[in-house]
């Protein structure tokens, strides 16, 4: 565990907590894409298949449980909670997210480190995570009116990705044989998707104006 990895995990954790806090306390999920949240739930479910069979550390197990629990409860809130679900921007959140899953699955079947069920599922989760933010970015651009918590949520998610790249660079120089093309390339693609958002986020922060994405 290095400082970049820890910073990445913490920003990831905070992003989820910010989102849950928003949903739980103000009973609103306005501006949040259910499509992206469903994809994250699938990402964690397929990645952590070995949660009870492959013990790494107490830290890892607890974090996995938090990510699984939070992603499924966010989906539950948005779909089932009688007050929260009313604030869902259903008409704006029209991204066909299921269409993202098939190419990711096919790619995972072709390009993987080892052709086993566990490994293909792990790889699938990496590819899917790389594109899972797309419905959320599309929704942000459509709604234009981005509240602070939603902006912070996406910012923290992007920061998590950036820290993970620093973590891989660090591990590459400090650990032997640490070369994982699949993880790195899908992680890099995912981080680049945030570049545009980051640009406007920092502009609004610098000029102290409300965050708004161009149409």
């Amino acid at each position: 565990m290095n400082i970049f990895r820890l910073a990445g995990d913490m920003t990831h954790l905070f992003s989820v907590l910010v989102l849950l806090l928003k949903i739980h306390t103000i009973k609103s999920c306005a501006g949040i894409s259910l499509k992206t949240q469903e994809l994250y739930a699938i990402v964690f479910a397929t990645r952590y298949l070995d949660i009870f069979t492959n013990y790494i550390s107490l830290y890892n197990t607890i974090m996995k449980l938090i990510f699984l629990g939070s992603s499924f409860s966010i989906v539950w809130y948005m779909r089932r909670h009688k007050i929260v679900r009313r604030s869902y921007d259903k008409d704006q959140d029209t991204f066909r997210h299921y269409f993202l899953m098939l190419p990711c699955l096919i790619l995972a079947l072709i390009i993987n480190e080892k052709f086993t069920f566990r490994e293909v599922m792990w790889t699938f989760s990496l590819y899917l995570e790389a594109v899972a933010i797309l419905p959320q970015l599309v929704l942000l651009q459509r709604t234009r009116n981005i509240d602070n918590l939603t902006g912070q949520y996406v910012f923290l998610l992007g920061a998590y990705r950036a820290f993970y790249i620093l973590n891989w660079i660090y591990r590459y120089f400090t650990e032997e044989h640490f070369v994982h093309w699949i993880t790195w390339i899908s992680g890099l693609v995912q981080t680049l998707l945030y570049a545009d958002f980051f640009y406007y986020y920092f502009q609004s922060w610098k000029n102290n104006v409300k965050l708004e994405l161009p149409a």
Partner: peptide, 10 residues
């Protein structure tokens, strides 16, 4: 092996 290394991440 390399695989286990990458699987220690979240």
């Amino acid at each position: 092996s390399g695989q286990e290394e990458s699987h220690d991440e979240l």
